[in-house]
């Protein structure tokens, strides 16, 4: 564990807490993509299967349980409790275009051709693009509630913090994880447009609005 990874994980944790807070306080999941949240459930379940057979650390164990549990809870809240506030007509990104290519990439790029390793690779690739339905929805509506933008910013920053962590680990431990690194850089790249608007507008106290 190093400082960058801890910051990344805390940012990830914060993003989920912000998301649940938004749903609970506004009693609504307006502006949120159900598809993106469903993809995160798939990401966490396929990646954290090793919970059942590998012990890394208490920290690792608790965080994995939290990510699986909270993503399932979010999906439940969106699907049942606050269902009427979710508008499927603007959540129209075709997730087949994400899941299919990620599955093919995972079959080609993995550290071992076993079920658990292929699923792990799949989860890494899928995570890198899982935000697309959400960003696509944002693009369509052209604006977002401030709390939703804080959620997206924390979620984007989390993977960005992993980049200095990988550089640090390369120099201190000699560990290189090319699949995670390439996907992580791509994932962070997808947020650049969003970050630009977030830091120039929302952080200055303005509403998140995309230029027409």
């Amino acid at each position: 564990m190093n400082f960058f990874r801890l910051l990344g994980d805390l940012s990830h944790l914060a993003s989920i807490l912000i998301l649940l807070h938004k749903i609970k306080t506004t009693r609504s999941c307006r502006g949120l993509s159900f598809k993106t949240q469903a993809l995160y459930v798939a990401v966490f379940i396929t990646r954290y299967l090793d919970l059942t057979y590998r012990w890394v650390s208490l920290y690792n164990f608790v965080m994995k349980l939290f990510f699986i549990g909270s993503s399932c809870a979010t999906l439940y809240l969106m699907r049942y409790k606050y269902c009427p506030t979710h508008d499927p007509s603007i959540d129209t990104f075709k997730i087949e275009y994400l899941v299919g290519p990620c599955a093919i990439l995972a079959l080609i790029f993995n550290y071992k051709f076993s079920v658990s390793e292929v699923l792990w690779s799949f989860s890494i690739f899928l995570e890198s693009v899982a935000i697309l339905p959400q960003l696509f929805m944002l693009q369509r509506t052209g604006e977002a509630e401030t709390i939703t933008t804080h959620y997206l910013a924390a979620l984007g920053i989390y993977r960005a913090f992993y980049i200095p962590n990988w550089i640090y680990r390369y120099f201190t431990e000699g560990v290189v994880d090319p699949i995670a690194i390439v996907a992580g850089i791509a994932q962070t790249g997808l947020y650049l447009d969003f970050f630009y608007v977030y830091f120039t507008k929302v952080m200055q106290g303005e509403k998140f609005e995309l230029p027409a």
Binding site: R5, D9, H12, R47, D50, R54, V56, S57, N60, M63, K64, F67, Y111, K112, E117, W120, Y162, N165, E173, V175, V176, D177, A180
Partner: peptide, 10 residues
């Protein structure tokens, strides 16, 4: 298991 296969990151 190699270090990358151990997947100690989240």
């Amino acid at each position: 298991e190699t270090p990358v296969e151990k997947h100690d990151e989240l």
